[in-house]
Write a protein that binds this DNA or RNA. Structure first.
Lengths: 139, 139
DNA sequence: CAGGATCCTCTCTGATACTG
DNA sequence: CAGTATCAGAGAGGATCCTG
């Protein structure tokens, strides 16, 4: 019970002592990461690649509702950040294999913790939404 | 070294056994949470409220570059999900105090872990981006 | 003080068609 | 197979003006 029982984590508490860094917010690594994994498909792709490497159409079939365009963009963004490794295999026709880098795999841990929180508190959040968005206040 | 040394967290590994839940992805609580905190201001507001309760213009001044519109929307979303409590104080003119709920405070923990990861790996990510986005491949 | 209403811009996302 | 290019719609985000 060292850091587990800390109500307010030290890291977030120590930061932001000023009125408002303004442009510092744009360059904040936390904001940066959140905006990358906060899109529609990134996390799902990361999780799938966390299970095993995938080829492009392998992922495409694996997700079904994702468009090639978004899959391409998602993989591109992940590769650009060094979370995913893209390797062209010398087959015929050429195939491309995507896999998590060490950095990408390391993201799985904090992600799983957040996922655990989300799953655990889903009912509370859903209930709160129902209260604030009554289906219809009596008909 | 129970869960700390696990390369791939059990939670994420156990999930998604199927080809692709498709609509299940839209209702996934993890995706849901990520899309809420993945926007531009939510996390910053949560962190500020994690330090102490704030009034509306208190937050507005505290962030500076946020528009009233986005601050309103952000607080609204957070209150709707039950992460933030909105209380109208009987002052004249009326003031409104925002504070984290217990649910909101509980989010600080997983958030700080992700923040720690982001800060720790920021240099690697930035370096990867520079490699993939050369400022100009020589003239 | 704490917003609401309106207008505008940009990005995300998706559907479709085409290519090496 | 693994993409690229283009078009179109929805939502995020911001600026400005107005209100109780």
């Amino acid at each position: 019970m060292s850091a587990r029982n800390t109500g307010v984590p030290a890291l977030l508490n120590a930061a932001l002592p000023r009125p408002v860094p303004s442009d510092e917010h744009d360059q904040c690594p936390v904001t940066d990461v959140l905006r990358r994994i906060g899109d529609k498909w990134t996390v799902l792709v990361v999780v799938l690649l966390g299970q095993r490497p995938h080829r492009f159409n392998d992922l495409h079939r694996g997700i079904e509702t994702i468009s090639q365009r978004m899959l391409t963009r998602t993989l591109r963004g992940l590769a650009e950040d060094g979370l995913v490794h893209r390797e062209v295999l010398p087959t015929n026709p050429p195939s491309v294999e995507y896999s998590l880098t060490r950095l990408g795999r390391s993201l799985l841990e904090p992600l799983s913790i957040l996922a655990e929180w989300a799953i655990e508190n889903q009912p509370v959040i859903a209930a709160s939404r129902r209260i604030h968005n009554p289906p219809s206040s009596k008909g």
